[in-house]
Design a protein around this nucleic acid. Structure first.
Length: 578
RNA sequence: GCCCUCGUAGCUCAGUGGAUAGAGCAUCCCCCUCCUAAGGGGAGGGUCGCAGGUUCGAUUCCUGCCGUGGGCGCCA
């Protein structure tokens, strides 16, 4: 629970009292919004217009009744009826002026909200196959998920970050095979490398390390491997699967070593990459563990006892159409092996069994068709599907010199997250990734991200922070001495604008948390920085007048806290000097 | 074909069931004897894709159409 004064919460209380005379008001969405125009006051309430509908009365008349019973407040200058029936409230400057010292008194918890719904929430993101380096698409999911998790944490929710490791499927087998084939070449055994195997240089690097460690221990004859394998030209997927089967058969228990080595290498690389990017997880959840622990068997049994499964063509199907899906889905193949979907059902049921009240999955937008079946499975198992929210993240397209720097997934020649971080830096990458709504296609301008100019929003915001640091350093005092500053002296238009902006921070965070929209924080920070720069030009801080000086320093010190908090949530540094 | 997403200023994008729809860039004009000009002020620029519907009020919600991107595996 935050002890900070909130003008909006205060007004909401007043209106709740005034609306007690209308029982109908309970069913109506009463909004207190910040009008676009200053002449419409600090807050506008639409209650009268909403009530007029159900009461079948004139909205301005209803507004009159509400206004008459609105309790008096020391913070309200005046309230008036305007337009079709808005109640516009004008606050006294004191309501905003106190915000600055209020923040300084308890900076860490500013924006915390009342956390009344601070339940346990799990957020699963990235979850890329550990079959190669992360690319720029994964980077967006990482930046989005990490920022969102930070926002949710800041508003008081108990957030648990998780990465689902797809260590059980065919893709991992393909990686293991690819590594082995490269290794065999080092041993002088040449099996034609399939075009649909993993082509990236990192595969060869893993083969090198295995050869360095174990020499020819895993060598098998090429002729033996190729024997009976169908021609790639006829069916390249069948060809690949046959090679995987051969690898497993010929290597026996040694296959697990190759597979495990590849997994460890790639997962480790991925973890390092993300850690450097400021993205960390509480748990890396293994898909294979679901198979081994029997959780999949249990989940499937659960669906079966509820009568949602049937057998057809030798496979086991989930009747997902009963829950709004387009078609039914296979959970266990004809060959007896569970599908990826079966594991995902078990995983999602497990999430809720672990006590998370709410689960957020961050997926690439190309997986949107997958949502109905997962929600369907939850519903079939008796879990309210509303407790799962899937946030879709669209692809990012890089632009350099105004040209698309397109990433081709073919031949492993895609732009990696590491490349991007090396080129523009972590700060710019983190910020640009969340500068768009997540479900919006992102044009990532590499030149702008790199430019150290006013055009670059990252530098613009960081510069505001550095400017404040510079002024406070020149002053040389201790911040805690500013808590007692007389903020009533902050009457300049730029000062009030900045104060109001600081007052918006809790609402911005609440909205960002509600809508799973960290980009709102990025936009807020741009506006906050603009207000700071505006004030910087308009007023001197290191004033002759001691009282005014302290008041202004209190204002910018408070601003510094909010800038730091916001940038911190987005994973962007707040340098003291630039 | 079916499903999802998006369509807002020249460009890149915010925004909202409300009052005169915003920002940055680009274009034009202006501001440093002063705490960082990596800054600030001003001007021009719009049929919120099109057409219906719901509503006191729609750019926002619903339907259709057009356009963008994506998805429609016993892959993961």
């Amino acid at each position: 629970m935050s002890s900070h004064f909130s003008p909006k919460t205060h007004l909401a209380d007043l209106f709740t009292q005034a609306l007690a005379q209308f029982p109908q008001a309970l069913d109506i969405a009463i909004e207190l919004e910040r009008p676009k125009q200053a002449s419409h006051g600090d807050f506008a309430c639409n209650a009268a217009m909403q009530l007029a509908k159900v009461l079948k009365r004139n909205p301005r008349e209803v507004a009159q009744s509400i206004l008459a019973s609105l309790p008096a407040s020391a913070w309200v200058e005046k309230s008036e009826i305007a337009g079709p029936g808005f109640i516009n409230v004008f606050l006294k400057p004191a309501a905003w002026q106190r915000v600055a010292t209020d923040i300084l008194r308890e900076p860490e918890s500013y924006g915390r909200g009342d956390a009344r719904r601070g339940g346990k929430v799990q957020i699963e993101f990235v979850s890329a196959n550990p079959t190669g380096p992360l690319h720029v698409g994964h980077g967006r999911g990482a930046a989005f998920g990490a920022s969102l998790a930070n926002v949710l944490t800041h508003v008081g929710q108990q957030v648990y970050r998780e990465y689902y490791v797809n260590d059980a499927g065919r893709q991992m087998d393909i990686l293991a095979l690819s590594t082995w084939l490269r290794y065999l070449a080092l041993c002088g055994e040449f099996v034609p490398f399939p075009g649909n195997a993993y082509q990236g240089g990192y595969v060869g690097a893993m083969a090198d390390s295995i050869y360095a460690l174990h020499a020819e221990r895993y060598k098998r004859a090429a002729a033996e491997i190729m024997a009976g394998v169908p021609d790639a030209a006829a069916d390249d997927e069948a060809h690949l699967d046959a090679l995987i089967a051969k690898a497993k058969a010929l290597l026996g228990p040694d296959y697990a070593y190759i597979h495990g080595h590849a997994l460890e290498e790639q997962l480790g690389d991925c973890r390092n990459d993300l850690t450097e990017f400021g993205v960390t997880f509480d748990k890396w959840f293994s898909e294979r563990s679901l198979h081994e622990s029997g959780l999949i068997d249990r989940a499937v049994e659960q669906l079966r006892t509820h009568g949602h499964l049937y057998e057809q063509d030798g496979a086991l199907w989930f009747r997902s159409t009963a829950f709004g899906d387009e078609k039914d889905r296979v959970v266990r193949r004809e060959n007896g092996i569970y599908t990826y979907f079966a594991a995902d059902i078990a995983y999602h049921l497990n999430k809720f069994e672990r006590g998370f009240e709410r689960v957020v999955d961050v997926w690439g937008a190309d997986h949107h068709g997958y949502i109905p079946r997962v929600k369907g499975a939850l519903a079939a198992a008796g879990v309210d599907p509303e407790r799962l929210t899937v946030a879709l993240v669209q692809f990012a397209v890089l632009y350099r010199n105004g040209q698309k720097a397109s990433m081709s997934t073919r031949a492993g020649e895609y732009v990696t997250l590491r490349d991007l971080r090396a080129e523009v830096g972590n700060d710019a990458a983190r910020f640009f990734y969340v500068l768009r709504k997540s479900d919006q296609h992102l044009d990532f301008d590499l030149d702008l991200a790199k430019s150290q100019s006013t055009d670059n929003p990252v530098y613009y915001i960081q510069y505001a922070h550095a400017r404040i640091c510079s002024v406070l350093a020149a002053w040389g005092g201790v911040e805690s001495d500013l808590i007692g500053a007389n903020t009533r002296l902050l009457t300049h238009a730029q000062e009030l604008a900045l104060l109001r902006r600081l007052g918006e921070f809790p609402e911005t965070l609440a909205n960002a948390a509600r809508d799973l929209a960290p980009h709102l924080v990025a936009y807020y920070l741009k506006e906050l920085a603009a207000d700071l720069h505006g004030l910087y030009v308009a007023c001197r801080f290191l004033e002759e007048n001691q009282e005014l000086k302290l008041a202004r320093l209190a204002l910018i010190a408070a601003t510094r806290h909010v800038l730091r908090a916001g940038l911190g949530m987005l994973g962007v540094s707040a340098p003291a000097k630039m």
